[in-house]
Amino acid sequence: MKAIFKRELQSYFTSMIGCVFVAFMVAITGVYFMVYNLNYGYPYFSYTLQGIVFVFLIAIPILTMRCFSEERKNKTDQLLLTSQVKIYEVVLGKFFSMAAVFLIPVLIYCFFPLIIKLQGEAHFLVDYSSILAFFLLGCVYISIGMFLSALTESQIIAAISTFGVLLILYLANGLTNFLPTTAIGNLIGLIFILTVIVLIIFRITKNWFLSVVLECAGIAAALITYLVKSSLFESLLSNWLGKLYLTSVLDNFSTNYLFDISGLVYYLSVIFVFVFLTIQTLQKRRWS
């Protein structure tokens, strides 16, 4: 794991991607910091952090796109997978190296509250806990990008799909308002989602019987629940989508001044899930 971590980190800085990423993150933050904190005199750096979450949409895909797709394209994954290193070590080595690259701008952010302090009042506790949440949010996005990169051979597809997923996550909060709130509307939406999932299962398993049984069972369960207690369905989909809005945890830190431990655990579990999925993807590829 150490060898892979070292190599990846080195390669990020010989290929310029690492430098560009750090420069981009710091530059955008610098602009927002100047406007919000220095010009308008707002004493919370956390507010700036909340404002620059959109930068992840562009920066994270650049960082993660090459991590597995490039290996696969250059067939260097043969070296990693035929060496004595376990697959989880490969995945973790890569994940930590990307997190380490991301840690550089985050460490630079740690100076910003000090600059605010020089100008007068500063709120270190809020600011530094927000920086922690910001770092973990970035790591969540990195794990998503890493997973998508493991799915494809093309860096471009990896980058664009990561961008798409991050965009949906970013917009999730706003989109919830457009979902139906009535029970019947949510029931229909649920059945639609169920059908899509069943179609995916069918594509993977090629098993007609299983798919039809799943679809019928799902519809029956949904209908019975609807008849028994239709209030359960009210705003169901918007609640679900709202849960996808990962930034809400950062909002708790930065605007509500809450140290949201459950939120941090949520971030860590999402990271764990995607690291796990990446490992499974690599395992599965050997068998297909």
Binding site: N74, K75, T76, Q78
Partner: peptide, 10 residues
């Protein structure tokens, strides 16, 4: 392997 697994940037 058939294609040597080399990292070209090293």
């Amino acid at each position: 392997p058939e294609q040597p697994p080399l990292y070209l940037d090293m």
